[in-house]
Simulated scan of single mutants.
Amino acid sequence: MKKLLSITTVLFSMFISFSVAAQQTEMGKVCKTYRGEEGLIVTTARYGPDKNNEVLIGVYDIDHSWAGKIFKAKVENYNGKADYEITYKGKAYIIMTLRNNNYEIYLPKESNMQKSPMYIAYAKDLSDNCTPNKFLQEYKEQQKTKK
């Protein structure tokens, strides 16, 4: 009887371990954070396996409805350029681009005062303070509140 209980406990533990592993999303090893005009902060991190070409993009510290939101984007690379595409209002929307080693972010215009695109530049100090798994957790929490 003790043997049967031990085997059952081991199998249950293995099942729980596999379930937790299946729910974990692979993330890149680093976040890249950019600082832009008007205090804008943009954080990115690879989401899922490298071959999927997906990233999470977070928008912070700006007076815009997207402030504090994290989006999952598909990255299309070509000729040294990149487009970061999300789905917005049911359509493809380029949220960020890389051209000539310069990044730009495109926020939907909400006022006459707002600039678009906004230029952003890599900020090592901010990148060093970002952890991909914490960024992922923030994204997952945001997704839960959407439902």
Rank of each mutant, 00 (worst) to 15 (best):
N133R: 07
L98C: 03
H64S: 07
G68T: 10
K146R: 13
G28A: 06
E104S: 15
E104Y: 08
Y103I: 01
K146M: 05
S116P: 01
K69V: 06
Q137C: 02
N102H: 07
I94Y: 05
E38W: 15
P49E: 07
M113F: 12
M96W: 00
S13K: 15
Y103N: 03
L4W: 12
P108V: 05
N77L: 02
Q142P: 09
S111T: 13
A123N: 14
Y88D: 12
Q137N: 08
K134T: 10
M96V: 01
Q114N: 05
Y106R: 06
F12A: 11
I120K: 12
Q142T: 13
A45D: 04
Y78K: 07
P108K: 03
E138Y: 09
Q137F: 12
A22E: 10
I95Y: 02
S111G: 14
N77Q: 07
E76D: 08
V30T: 09
N79S: 09
V30E: 11
F15P: 00
T131K: 03
F135R: 06
Q143P: 00
M113E: 14
S13E: 07
K69T: 13
A82H: 13
K109V: 09
Q143R: 12
Y106I: 02
A22V: 10
E138G: 03
G58Y: 15
K74F: 14
D83W: 06
K74C: 13
Y84G: 01
Y93C: 02
N77I: 01
K29H: 06
A22D: 12
G39Q: 09
V55P: 09
I120V: 06
C31H: 14
E85T: 04
D50A: 12
L40V: 04
Y88A: 15
L4Q: 10
A82G: 11
G80Y: 02
A67E: 14
D61V: 04
T43H: 07
K89T: 05
G39P: 09
K144Y: 06
M14T: 06
D61A: 03
K91I: 11
Y60L: 09
Y47T: 14
E141V: 04
D83S: 08
V75Q: 04
Y47V: 13
N112V: 08
V55T: 14
T43V: 03
A73I: 02
N79V: 07
K140P: 03
I95T: 04
Q24E: 15
S116V: 15
A121S: 04
V75A: 09
V55A: 08
G36C: 10
N129F: 02
T87E: 12
I62Y: 12
Q142K: 07
N52A: 13
